[in-house]
Design a binder for these strands. Structure first.
Ligand SMILES: [Mg+2]
Length: 689
DNA sequence: GAATGTAAATTTTTT
DNA sequence: ATTTACATTC
């Protein structure tokens, strides 16, 4: 239990490394984190630690170092969700996996957020649940994370603003639908794993002794389900090692409960608590601010004042910069200017990171950087692949890929037929390309082997004949022409031209002028492909680039050029959890954004709920500033465009917690200063040249 | 039913 | 700005 930058994760990774060196089998070690980024870093750090420590262990062990490094991927290191998925799929001695015992097919697909919401809506359409489907989805998500059951949910009069009994009915229907179709959503990963460990006799025994050591990072953000999983996995051997900081709990919306870490000694009276009070990350200035922000907490909280221990860097420490801009434009100008200054000081683009409270703010930041040709990558954010037009084109390109494979004589009859089948069904389900005729639409979706339409002419002719409407026949003709035309033409035409050809062939050019959905969708598609299409060559390499762009987007990877390591990173404060950077910007440090307040303002929220939420916003601010090693810049705008309307915001109340002596306030550069700076810059560059 | 208009809502993450 | 639910019209 210790504050930010005190080395909690370092201790955890070192422990894992030592366990491995001591001969503990890698696949008996379970290490859970919360975000993908943190998990990636954890794996890397453990590998490094093993190599670092190898010099200090007996030669006999050192000799096995290569074996150890090879066995590392077998260790269970990842996010809770990914580890649960692995548990559910792992076969036992008899060849059965936990999902099968729970009545799911051994291979099940995972629903994206958008798909799960759609499926929920679909499965309870005839129930007439008296609430907004989005609220219902959010409520059920939380219910799952709290390990409720439909029965216990039904006992709530209202739960998260939705009627408990009706929500429980909807839940049951939704579970039924998922199970029958072999689908699971994110919540199911935790829920099913927790169920498998706790409820099923046969399964349970296996998991209770499965891991010799259970280690959890960021324990303050465990929710009921994660807590149950960690507790049960460690129940038999009691080798549970957790690190965390109750002042950094920021995932309350996902059911995280600080009491899990605060009450650890009640669960385990014989637990040993280790406190770390030295900070090895930040400059004294930044640490002073962090300590001051913490000092403002309710009485009775653990004192976690930190001592600055980070070695003085090559650059002299600077005060925290607070800039209160008049509007976004002004704010972004300042950020861009500061970036240039930091570059002058010798920081690189990849040393810098820009945080915001909501993804909505990433837009102006991104366009400001793009306009000034500052390389950046945006991490996370709403997936472009939730757009129906984008998904349609992904499916089209998958079909084109299969058609091209056929031309290249590399067709895998089983795998590629299945791929094409899925692609065609996706296209028809989304309905962007038609057919509009309902009977024909249903007929195509019900075809047992739709891939034959594109793979053999006989299948195409049969399908066209089976259509009752000319419109559906035209649709099939367009599919044939478009997909085979693209596969044929790609040898000489660039992907950019192929895309134009496809849009044209599908008749979307005309639709684009009228249909707003299509028009906007095509803009999304351009945005997704923007970083690749202009450079994509003709032929197979170009097609692979396009397919990779869709794939990267599905994985939530940056929209901009993936290969660009040398870039400023843009991410939410939440996503920054557990990470650290030399230079941190936080934009939009304003009332109503940080602390965030609901635009509508929910009336039924109780006073204590409100206070709790606001405390979490304060912890979020603490997390944000403690990511910084050397430089910290906090900006706000008095006016900004938010969700399409101009709003006025005061600077955040949290800024007042910063001690005056560590802050440079109102350091706006006048136009004259800026001109002088540019002149100076010009001569410097000239001199260097 | 499809097309068209209106009002309300809008966070943060997990393969 | 953009989506989505719901109401109204053809
Ligand atoms: Mg950490």
């Amino acid at each position: 239990m210790a504050g930010a930058g005190s080395g909690k994760t370092a201790v955890l990774t070192r422990r894992v490394a030592l366990l491995l060196l001591a001969g503990c089998p890698a696949d008996q070690i379970f290490v859970a984190t919360f975000t993908v980024k943190a998990a990636g870093e954890m794996k890397e750090r453990i590998g490094k630690q093993v190599q670092d420590l190898a010099g200090r262990v007996p030669p006999a062990i050192r000799a096995r170092l290569d074996d150890l490094m090879r066995a590392l991927p077998k260790a269970w290191i990842g996010t809770f969700h990914s580890l649960c998925l692995r548990m559910l799929r792992e076969k036992d001695a008899d060849g059965f996996s936990a999902v099968e015992e729970l009545g799911y097919p051994p291979t099940f697909s995972i629903l994206s957020d958008a798909d799960s919401r759609k499926l929920l809506k679909e499965s309870c359409a005839d129930l007439a649940v008296p609430c907004d489907p989005r609220d219902l989805s959010a409520a059920l998500d939380l219910a799952v994370n709290e390990l409720l059951t439909p029965e216990t949910l039904a006992r709530h009069k209202t739960y998260e603003g939705v009627p408990g009994e009706a929500a429980a009915e909807a839940w049951k229907k939704y579970v039924e639908t998922k199970r029958s179709r072999g689908l699971a959503d994110f919540g199911d990963l935790l829920y099913l794993a927790a169920t498998a460990i706790a409820d099923r006799r046969m399964c349970a025994e296996r998991w209770k002794t499965r891991f010799s050591h259970v280690l959890i990072d960021e324990y303050q953000d465990t929710n009921v389900a994660q807590y149950a999983i960690a507790t049960e996995l460690a129940a038999a051997r009691r080798n549970l090692f957790v690190v965390g900081d109750d002042d950094q709990s920021i995932y309350g919306f996902r059911g995280a409960d600080i009491r899990n870490i605060r009450a650890f000694t009640e669960d385990y009276p014989d637990a040993r608590i280790v406190r770390l009070i030295r900070n090895y990350r930040s400059t004294p200035v930044i640490l002073g601010a962090a300590n001051a922000v913490l000092a403002d907490r309710p009485a009775g909280a653990t004192d976690k004042t930190l001592l600055a221990m980070a070695p003085a860097g090559a650059r002299p420490p600077e005060k925290i910069v607070v800039y209160e801009a008049s509007d976004e434009q002004d704010e972004m100008n300042f950020v861009a200017f500061q970036i240039q200054e930091f570059l002058q000081e010798g920081f690189r683009h990849e040393d810098m990171v820009i945080f915001y409270r909501v993804h909505e703010l990433s837009g102006p930041v991104a366009s400001a950087l793009r306009a000034r040709q500052v390389p950046y990558v945006e991490v996370g954010g709403p997936a472009l692949l939730e757009n129906d037009v984008v998904r349609t084109f992904r499916a089209v390109y998958q079909a084109v890929n299969v058609a091209a494979l056929k031309r290249e004589g590399r067709l895998d009859p089983i795998r590629d037929s299945l791929l094409l089948q899925e692609a065609l069904r996706e296209i028809w389900t989304l309905g962007i390309l038609g057919p509009k005729n309902r009977v024909d639409h249903a007929m195509l979706l019900a075809l047992p082997a739709p891939e034959r339409i594109l793979l053999d002419e006989q299948g195409y002719v049969e399908a066209v004949r089976a259509c009752q409407s000319g419109e559906a026949q035209q649709h099939l003709e367009r599919m044939w022409t478009g997909i085979h035309g693209a596969a044929f033409g790609m040898d000489i035409h660039t992907p950019q031209d192929i895309l134009k050809f496809l849009v044209d062939t599908f008749g979307l050019k005309d639709a684009a002028t009228g249909d707003a959905t299509v028009r906007r969708g095509l803009v999304w598609l351009q945005r997704l492909l923007a970083s690749r299409l202009p450079y994509a060559p003709p032929g197979r390499p170009g097609l692979d680039l396009v397919l990779a762009a869709f794939h990267a987007s599905a994985e939530g990877e940056p929209i901009t050029d993936l290969t660009q390591e040398n870039a400023v990173r843009l991410l939410t404060i939440h996503a920054s959890k557990g990470l650290e950077f030399p230079v941190v910007f936080v934009v939009g440090v304003e009332e109503d954004l940080l602390p965030f307040s609901h635009p509508g303002g929910s009336a039924e929220e109780t006073e204590s709920d409100r206070a709790e939420r606001e405390e979490e916003e304060g912890r979020l601010f603490y997390v944000a500033i403690t990511r910084a090693r050397e430089r910290l810049v906090l900006t706000s705008a008095a006016q900004r465009r938010l969700y399409g309307r101009v709003v006025s915001h005061r600077p955040s109340r949290f800024l007042a917690r910063l001690p005056a002596d560590v802050v440079t306030r109102g350091s706006a550069l006048s136009a004259l200063d800026r001109a002088a700076h540019r002149t100076r810059q010009f001569f410097k560059d000239l001199f260097r040249a």
